[in-house]
Each structure stands twice: as C-alpha cells, then as structure tokens.
Amino acid sequence: MYAQMVKSEASNDDPALLAAFQARIDAGEKIEPKEWMPEGYRKTLIRQIGQHAHSEIVGQLPEGNWITRAPTLERKAILLAKVQDEAGHGLYLYCAAETLGVSRDELTEALLSGKMKYSSIFNYPTLTWADMGAVGWLVDGAAIMNQVPLQRTSFGPYARAMVRICKEESFHQRQGYDIMMKLAQGTPEQKAMAQDALNRFWYPSLMMFGPSDKDSVHSAQSMAWKIKMNTNDELRQKFVDQTVPQAEYLGLTVPDPAVKWNEEKGGYDFSEPDWAEFFEVIKGNGPCNAERIEARQKAWDDGAWFRDGLMAHAAKQRTAKVAAE
C-alpha cells in the first residue's frame, strides 16, 4: 500500500485515559487534532500519513517520466492532470499530518534523509507507454482498495483528506485501464507492450499491500485504533479477485500460472510475490530508489532560492505596509 509496514508506537499513557480513548474510537467518534490522544497514536499516524504523502509525491516521478512522450495531445493532458492530482493528494496528506504537530519541511527532510519511507512500487521503472496503463490500472487500483476504507479512519483530518482523494482518484484507475484497452485492441506490437507491462507490474502491485500481517502486533494496534482498516491479506485477495477478470477481458495473461478460481473460498488462488525482493526494495535496493530520491532532493535544493525569495518579498511588503500605517 502507499503506507507499508507502518510500525505502531507503544503508548505509556494513563490506562484510564487510554480506555476512554479506545471507547470513543469503538463508538465511531472522530478524533480531532487538539483532542487528547495517546502519544503512540499520534506518532503512528505521523508515520503513516507521512509515508502516504511521500508515496504520492515520489509517485509523480514514474508517471511524470512519460508526460513528455505521451502519444496524443489528449493522452498528454490526461496524464498531466493525473500526475498533478497526485501532487494535490500529497499536499492534502501533508496538511493532515501537520495537524499532528510536524511541519511539511520536517517530513520532507525525513524523506530525503531516508528516515521515512514511501511505497515500494515507485521504485520500479516505467519503461514503455503501456506502463502508464499498468500503473493506472494496477497501482491505482491497489491504492484505491486501501483508500476507500480509510475514509472511515478515526483521525478526522486523515479521513477528510481521504474523502477528497477518493473523489478525485476515481478517474485514475479508469484512465489506466483505458490505455490498456487501446493497446490490447491495437497492433501486435501494442498488445505485446501491454502484456510486458502487466508482467512487470503484477508482483510489485501485490507487494504494495505488504507482507502478511495476520500475526503482527503493530497491525492489531493500528486496527484497534482504526488507522488500518483491513489486513494486508484481505486487501490483496480482494485486489486479485477484482483484477484477474479485468486482465481476461483485455485478453492479457496474469504472469502467475497458479492463478485459479477457488470455488471453496470464493476467490482466486495465486502465488505470493518474492518477499526477499520486497525487503531489498524497502532497504533501498530497488531498481530506481536512488534516482527517485535524487530527483526529490534536486527539486528541494534547486527550489530553495525560489521559496526564500518569495518569503523575503512577503516580509518586505509587510514591513512597507506597517511603515505606511
């Protein structure tokens, strides 16, 4: 997911306060920024929302990679609008995190220093135009699985950001599938391009949900706090069940011979992704980790004079205004 393997923080708070807090959450109340919350809840949320925000921003890069090569004016406009939305989603999420007492600049620095992570998926390269289809269809499809239930998360600002994001995201997956349909119905080369993209993005998409967490204490705490709404395995199964028929419709083959409908469980059987690869990617050894952080670092460094220049001008204007009064 956009927030993977978020460790929940323990809380050393007064048990009575903790119990009252849990009761509010169980009753479906929203927790708002200035209300009392366990320190662990606050820290876990900063980590999770921050990671989610970073994923949106770093997620601009693999798709941004094709804006200048989009094959038609309309495709170029749609892709640009979509990547722009991702910047917007990052912005909403940073703002939600800021209500917890951390600044956007602090979060940015934590991303650049490697202290905070972003989703493993964005460390895979986009090599062909079909990857724009695959990313929209699979990656956004996987993200939506997680984001829709998060609209009901217990922290008010996070839930409200997710409502806005889900509303805007609704076209993202469709535009990806639309690209895939066009390619799948196109020339043999285009169809091969589409199949190749599915081959490369299938397992990394499954990894987005994170390793199985059925026995994880962190997960249990986050689920009790309603900042994680489903287990990783639940969401992964749901994603596979949704995606396999969509691939069939396209006439493409999911690159897993084990994929088979299982009548008994009412879902598809499928192979686990290579978790060793996943942990390497998380550690920084994915194909594009270095480039992604370099790009964000460059934007941050190169933009410093611009941000400072505008602050200086605003300060001058304020001084002039005070002097005139």
Binding site: L91, C95, R104, R160, A161, L310, M311, H313, Q317
Partner: peptide
C-alpha cells in the same frame, strides 16, 4: 483544506 503560501495574495 489548507496549503502553504508566503502571503495572503499568493
């Protein structure tokens, strides 16, 4: 929602 800006006009 919220956002960052150097002054009100921006």
């Amino acid at each position: 929602g919220s956002l960052h800006a150097p002054d009100a006009e921006m």
